[in-house]
């Protein structure tokens, strides 16, 4: 299990390749990457992601450990960035390795659902009109109930 919180960009291809090649007897590798899109109202210049340095790493590790306890996984990778990002930048990625694809897919979805609402990150969008904090969505909170 590897959990990384960093400001710098990450190399998705390299991370995915290293993750996939680091295991034997894993029949399924699933990766998900979150990318910065425009603000809903358009015209976004940049996004700044604030986080809680003392808590972020621990919270992500706890979520990853929960995934490992619920599904039969060979490995988990979580990378999440903070700081200033622009449209098209990769914000985060998760990767799961399992003997079978159902475990790998479900665990990746679980990780995404939980780190959206339970990892201490806050997004702020800057447009020509000013800056606005991104509001959490009810459906993101509701998504946790299926697990």
């Amino acid at each position: 299990m590897r959990v990384v919180v960093q400001e710098a960009p990450f190399d998705f291809g390299k991370e995915a390749q290293e993750f996939a090649s680091g295991h034997s007897n894993m029949g399924a590798i699933v990766t998900f990457t979150g990318v910065v899109r425009d603000a809903d109202k358009g015209g976004m210049d940049r996004m700044v992601i604030e986080h809680y340095p003392g808590m972020t790493q621990k919270a992500l590790e706890a979520i990853a450990e929960e995934a490992v306890s619920r599904w039969t996984l060979g490995d988990v990778l979580v990378i999440h960035r903070h700081g200033e990002l622009r449209q098209g930048d990769m914000i985060m990625m998760v990767a799961t390795a399992a003997r079978h694809r159902v475990d790998a897919f479900e665990a990746a979805e679980f990780l995404m659902d939980y780190l959206k609402s339970r990892a201490p990150f806050w997004k702020k969008e800057y447009t020509a009109d000013g800056a606005e904090w991104v509001a959490a969505k009810d459906e993101d909170e509701d998504a946790l109930s299926r697990w």
């Binding site: 780190l115 609402s117 339970r118 904090w133 509001a135």
Partner: peptide
């Protein structure tokens, strides 16, 4: 103290 989180 903080607002609901918006990670991912």
């Amino acid at each position: 103290f903080f607002p609901p989180m918006t990670g991912g």
